[in-house]
Design a protein around this nucleic acid. Structure first.
Lengths: 241, 241
DNA sequence: CGTCGTATTGAGGAGGCTCAACTAAGGTGG
DNA sequence: CCACCTTAGTTGAGCCTCCTCAATACGACG
């Protein structure tokens, strides 16, 4: 709470059994201050690309405000969304000196950019800081694996249910201004983005959403919000298989 | 080269553009010696479970010989294979003090087990060692994302082609005794495991394999080996879309 | 109020899943 | 050494869901 506008990293740590599976702040206040010092703040307007896949990778980024998407171009012109990144998430980890994904802002976003060589210097002095990054990346690995099982499913409704539960877990941690109506989840991304993330076509996603609505499981106050009206049945759809 | 029987970790580093996208040894000889000192060697017979999901997680493991699979039980009794782990891979990264996957040996396997608290102590003294782990986990994250796009596809042949290319990349690094016939790739896992990994049923996988064989793209000398006879057409199937 | 991009809805076809039978391979005991 | 049994893998028929192509609604903005 003390450092409202400093870099933050959230994840489930390796140990510390803590409140069942909740992501918590990893960084100490001192580490957050330090990162704020060595970081460059970037304000990114919506629909702006932060970096392209294949670009020379100089910095890693920590999302502070807003939502980003990481995606790849598929040679047929379409794109596949690999991840949505929320505040306290890390993006821009390079491979062989190059970014592997494209990163684009879905909303106005604020990020802390840290040069990799600078960060590595900090790691040298503060082993715990590096340990937090290790923890965070491990956390993202597990999230990626969860996504994998989520999209491996064949049924569109199940995929969507899984996605909505993920979003809900995510937004329950962030009592921010974006969510005006309580109990209502904000969807910062377009239908096309969701479909791409879930490995569905836009049409199938739309039909799945209509089905959930028809069954009284969710409501769509507008295109950018969902309201879960029957949590247990949503979970029943998301979990099994 | 020098430490044939010491822990090894391979990955594509953050920087170092090196021979296009090839995983290289991360650890120095000294680090490998150190890890060998603090590690416990485990020999695991085939079909033996190294640890279960939910178990108290005390150690992380580095695969030294053999192949492991990481999988989850799906409450309908079936299981979903999350990853296959080859020598130089790391497994057993905990979440909240518990393992998230089950780990089982597909072949006779040798692993180095390192207690997490011991490893953390080593991290404190050798920042570069921790950096290598960070690099490795990042590498696995990207592999997981690749798998995700691989299984998001609808067509079984494409999935299988992607999988075979992955295996090929993998086995080209390991000129071990297992692969008697040159140009032939060893399949340490069962058809059911492959199907589970790719999000297919066994039957569909079998048909896809038959199709590839019929088109003269691959041959199956026996159940446990594949021979790629038309690399370019395999790649054409794997890459697009 | 018209236009453009986003989202929904409809009809038809392709591909994978399910259920089920069958073949091949490995292991065991007589 | 062979008969037997068990497990792994292949093949077939029919159904179901999602994809494709196309047209229609909705909303934001000028």
């Amino acid at each position: 709470m003390s450092q409202a506008h400093a870099p933050s990293i959230r994840a489930i740590p390796f140990d510390h059994t803590w409140p069942a599976g909740l992501a918590t702040e990893l960084l100490t206040d001192q580490q957050r201050r330090h990162l704020a010092e060595i970081a460059t703040v970037r304000f990114v307007p919506p629909r702006t690309t932060l970096f392209h896949a294949g670009d020379q990778a100089e910095s890693v980024f920590i999302v502070s405000r807003g939502v980003m998407k990481a995606y790849r171009e598929l040679r047929n012109g379409k794109q596949r969304v690999m991840a949505f990144l929320f505040p306290s998430d890390v993006l821009g980890l390079a491979e062989g000196g190059r970014y592997v994904n494209n990163a684009q802002a879905l909303t106005p976003a604020t990020l802390y950019g840290i040069r990799m060589d600078t960060l590595k210097d900090s790691f040298r002095r503060d082993f715990a800081l590096q340990f937090h990054f290790l923890c965070k990346v491990t956390h993202e690995l597990r999230e990626s694996q969860r996504q994998t099982i989520g999209i491996a499913r064949r049924d569109a409704s199940g995929k969507l249910a899984t996605f909505l539960e993920m979003l809900q877990r995510n937004s329950s941690l962030r009592e921010e201004a974006e969510e005006a109506p309580p109990g209502s989840i904000w969807l910062p991304m377009s239908r096309a983005d969701i479909a791409s993330y879930l490995g569905l076509t836009q049409e199938t996603l739309s039909r799945a959403a209509a089905r959930l609505k028809r069954h009284g499981i969710v409501k769509f106050p507008d295109r950018r919000h969902v309201q879960i009206t029957d949590r247990s049945r949503l979970h029943a759809l998301a979990d099994p298989a």
